[in-house]
Design a protein around this nucleic acid. Structure first.
Lengths: 246, 246
DNA sequence: CGTGCGCTTGAGACGCGTCAACGTGCGTGG
DNA sequence: CCACGCACGTTGACGCGTCTCAAGCGCACG
């Protein structure tokens, strides 16, 4: 996923109705696809590496991820990437740009993905007529604020703590609350994880190795299995040695 | 401002109408104090060290700061404080808890302060009847998301960069865009600044000294004067040596 | 005029970033 | 089907920035 090479492109876009969708009525899209906003959504497929949108482009919609995985990031003044988060099915993309005419971040697929597009004008319509939709949208923004606040705290922890928290979150997000010793697939690279957690790629790799040596983890490239949840939670809680830098 | 000693208390609360308020019509309070929500606001004064609210308490309102300064923070699992930001007149307090039944962070006055309380039920009323108020509130949440995203990036910078950015922001916020070489007052302690920027108190102090020695700054305790804005901006942009840790 | 808290300054330790080299899986083309 | 290339991952050596610990300083308070 280099800086500019691949253009922002969206493939195989088609109209969409949410009735009968496997995501069910809890989906934000289902709440939108009613009233005067009904029938305005569309679904798009993306390949790994495709950008859904780029920072600076006109922002005219919100997206519900219905499959695959995305990386949300901003390019820092010095040319680096700051990963804001990984976005999985059920999550919403573009909510940080909802109040801006241009996207404030970029989103790129890190696995073959599908999204449901909710056009801005449909959102505006639905906001005006549905208190329920309003509340869901506001709740999403509130959750994003919470997430960023927690992320802020992560930035003050040791490498072990960051990775432990990341793995636990990832596990909880993909498998629900009960994360057993089942192997799962990490769609993002070590580099992505590092840019998310504020660590060098090498450090992420070293921590993975260390966790594996201690028996808390079993991982081979993108496949990963948590073997000792409690140990990870303990690390996440107190950190292994101390706070940071000394 | 220790962890628990002083209880959450609000002094001298009185009813309030926004007509004739010096903050003018751009204030979120003025937009609330209309329609069926009119006349429901109240104003409270706080002393330095008073808590406006604490994390975990039932959250039933939003506050517009009309004077003084606040520190917003959360207590981390290990007992430390993570400062989320300093809140100045015109800013809104409690927006991160708007979608929650309980406050998700604490707010304490770091200088004698005044706030205008906007009760949750009044907000709900006004949201239902005023698209303008809705948009303002959503815009506030969007700005908070943006702020936290930038803060996230700050966490990856050198100590010099963090302090430089902090000082420039602080200066811009208190004096508007044009920040000349006028001395201003920093209401927060070195410890607060450190907990905000993710630095040890001693490091903050050292950076201040270094910036002063280089002629970019003149500071004596809480009084501070930016003597070379461009130098600070240069530091903020590229960082002095390199990224971090090496 | 004491007393305490916040700020400053110094010395030492250490985690993590950088640089560099090697291993490994995967896709491509001969 | 194998050889090759390339991107990603791993491992090691080393240096630097910042944290910790500790002492001294100075302003503001009673």
């Amino acid at each position: 996923m280099p800086a500019v090479p691949t253009p922002t492109r969206r493939r195989r876009t088609e109209p969409l109705r949410c009735t009968g969708c496997e995501r069910g009525v809890d989906c934000l899209g289902a709440a939108l696809d009613e009233g005067s906003a009904a029938g305005r959504m569309s679904r798009t497929g993306l390949e790994r590496g495709d950008h859904l949108y780029r920072m600076g482009e006109p922002s005219d919609s919100l997206y519900v991820v219905s499959g695959g995985a995305f990386k949300s990031y901003v390019v820092t003044p010095d040319g680096g990437e700051q990963v804001l988060g990984f976005v999985l099915p059920g999550d919403v993309l573009g909510i940080d740009s909802l109040t801006h005419p241009h996207f404030q971040s970029s989103a790129v697929a890190i696995a073959p993905a599908r999204v449901c597009r909710m056009p801005a004008e449909a959102i505006r319509l639905r906001i005006g007529e549905s208190p329920d939709f309003r509340e869901r949208l506001t709740a999403r923004m509130g959750r994003e604020i919470q997430r960023l606040q927690r992320l802020l705290h992560l930035g003050r922890c040791t490498a072990e703590q960051r990775v432990a928290v990341f793995l636990l979150n990832q596990s909880a997000q993909t498998e629900g609350v009960g994360f057993a010793g089942r192997a799962q697939r990490l769609p993002m690279s070590r580099r992505d994880i590092g840019q998310f957690l504020g660590l060098a790629t090498e450090t992420v790799s070293r921590v993975f190795t260390r966790l594996q040596d201690s028996g808390a983890l079993r991982c081979r490239r993108t496949s990963i299995e948590i073997r000792n949840v409690e140990r990870l939670m303990e690390i996440a809680r107190v950190g292994l040695p101390l706070r940071r830098g000394g």
